[in-house]
């Protein structure tokens, strides 16, 4: 990589990489992207889940409503959510340097990505928990469950498929953010696309990065969909062909007969 040209070259055909050279450039970049997004998502889940739980529990109709605390927390999260990622990244440079000691490279990209992602994910968790039917919560509370028991065995447990679906969306958004972080030298697919595809008009590299990104997003989506299906009993129904007893809704007569057994 002897990238001497910072300015775009008008007739760049001579500097284009050959198709044979592209994998050597793109594959390590893909690895960088996976590391960046992977580390970011670990932080996002670790921080975003408790934050989302707090947002739901403290909010109106939550398990332990605290209106003032909820408003403060919600406002902080909203600020994190409302800044465009490019601006958030620039604004966070001093903080990033404090945490990682640098403001370029993968570690420097993870900090703003994790922050933006946590704000995003906390809303996803909050929304998923809020969608759990209040009647389920009432039943559990009426049978003497503590707020913590209601949270774990009813709310979080019922919200798992919804949270996994949100996690998929969140991960894909982080792949997108990693490409934006690439523009400030974070490495990864986005960096390759910008330096080779955009600044050097290397169409071969551009097309390759696009194909890789599309494939990556499709793979994450497929994985996420599979996880949602696996955790939703009623969508597992069709794949239950191995089940020995066929599923059938009983007739009214059977139902009446059952009572008298």
């Amino acid at each position: 990589m002897t990238a001497v040209l910072a300015a775009p070259v008008l007739a760049a055909t001579s500097t284009d990489l050959s198709w044979g050279e592209i994998p050597a450039l793109v594959l390590p970049a893909l690895g960088d992207t996976l590391v960046m997004v992977g580390v970011t998502m670990l932080v996002v889940v670790a921080l975003g889940t408790p934050l989302g739980v707090a947002l739901d529990a403290l909010g109106p109709g939550g398990l332990t409503p605290r209106p003032v605390l909820h408003r403060v927390l919600s406002a902080v999260v909203s600020v994190g959510r409302s800044l465009p990622f490019l601006i958030l990244m620039a604004a966070l440079v001093p903080f990033t340097r404090l945490v990682t000691g640098t403001n370029i490279g993968i570690p420097a990209a993870v900090v703003p990505m994790a922050l933006a992602g946590t704000a995003f994910f906390s809303r996803i968790v909050e929304n998923s928990l809020r969608s759990v039917s209040p009647s389920l919560v009432r039943v559990a509370r009426a049978s003497g469950a503590s707020p913590l028991q209601v949270l774990t065995s009813v709310k979080l447990s019922e919200a798992v498929p919804s949270i996994l679906g949100g996690l998929t969306i969140n991960t894909i958004a982080m792949i997108e953010y990693s490409a934006i972080a690439g523009t400030i030298g974070a490495g990864g697919i986005g960096y390759v696309a910008v330096t080779y595809g955009y600044q050097r008009f290397d169409h071969g590299v551009m097309v390759t990065t696009i194909v890789v990104l599309v494939a990556l997003v499709a793979a994450v989506q497929a994985l996420g969909d599979a996880a949602v299906r696996a955790t939703t009993p009623h969508s597992r129904r069709r794949s239950r062909w191995w089940s020995a007893t066929p599923t059938s809704v009983p007739t009214a007569r059977e139902e009446l007969a059952n009572v008298h057994h």
């Binding site: 389920l136 039943v139 559990a140 469950a145 065995s153 447990s157 009993p233």
Partner: peptide, 26 residues
């Protein structure tokens, strides 16, 4: 006090047995 609500209120991701078990688990 045992409570039975209108919309049965069963947890969708648990079997009949697991639903009945929950208050005992709690």
């Amino acid at each position: 006090i045992g409570t039975v609500f209108q919309a049965d209120g069963l947890l969708t991701r648990r079997t009949a047995a697991q639903n009945v078990e929950l208050p005992l688990r709690h």
